[in-house]
Simulated scan of single mutants.
Amino acid sequence: MTKKSTKAPAKKPAAAKAPKRGAAEATAGRGGKVAKTQLVEQVAEKSGLTKKQAAQGVDAAMDTIVEALRQGQSVGLPGLGTLSVRDTAARTGVRPGTSERIQIPAGKKVAFKVAQTLKGELKQRSPDYHVLLAD
């Protein structure tokens, strides 16, 4: 008996890889996600800052928002919405697979309420905006 080798399939040549998308292309598609690097690029482009300065600004803003939420404060972002911390009640849940009843302790969650101006803009641009704004 001979033993068959199990080789991994050959990799595609580098030319077959899809080219990297720019920030504008990535945000143009519906349902896409804007990564931090893309956000930094856009802030740098719109503000005239270097990418390093824009990254520091984005980091500072995110750190400030997170710290305010940790302290239980709401964070209003004009034209975008409000982030706030809400308490969740203790409840009984069901463990998937075993159907065992479990007690889920009370906790906290971050909630986001969309600003009316943004909600109106999304409504005008998308006929199925209610799917995007389910909460």
Rank of each mutant, 00 (worst) to 15 (best):
Glu41Pro: 00
Leu39Asn: 05
Arg30Trp: 03
Ala90Phe: 02
Ala115Ile: 03
Ile104Pro: 01
Leu80Gln: 10
Thr82Val: 11
Arg70Lys: 15
Lys11Ile: 08
Arg91Lys: 13
Ala90Gln: 11
Asp135Met: 09
Val131Asn: 07
Asp59Val: 04
Ala28Cys: 10
Ser99Gln: 15
Lys12Pro: 03
Glu121His: 08
Ala10Glu: 08
Leu49Asp: 08
Thr64Glu: 09
Ala44His: 01
Leu133Tyr: 14
Ala134Arg: 15
Ser126Arg: 12
Val94Glu: 05
Ala61Gln: 05
Thr92Lys: 13
Arg86Thr: 07
Ala28Ser: 15
Ala61Pro: 01
Gly32Gln: 14
Ser74Gln: 10
Leu69Phe: 02
Glu25Trp: 08
Val75Cys: 01
Lys52Asn: 07
Pro9Glu: 02
Leu49Met: 13
Val131Pro: 03
Ala44Gly: 01
Ala26Asp: 04
Glu100Cys: 07
Gln103Phe: 01
Gln124Ile: 12
Gly79Ile: 02
Asp87Leu: 02
Lys51Met: 11
Lys7Asn: 12
Val75Thr: 03
Lys36Thr: 14
Gln56Cys: 02
Ala24Lys: 11
Lys36Tyr: 10
Gly48Met: 11
Ala115Lys: 07
Lys20His: 07
Lys52Pro: 00
Lys33Leu: 10
Ala10Gly: 06
Leu69His: 03
Thr117Trp: 06
Arg30Ala: 09
Gly107Asn: 07
Ala15Met: 04
Val34Pro: 09
Ala111Thr: 07
Ala10Asn: 06
Lys123His: 13
Pro19Leu: 08
Arg125Phe: 02
Gln42Trp: 07
Gln116Asn: 11
Lys113Thr: 15
Ala8His: 10
Gln38Ile: 05
Lys52Met: 11
Leu39Val: 08
Gln124Arg: 14
Met62Trp: 05
Ala89Lys: 14
Gly120Glu: 15
Thr64Val: 09
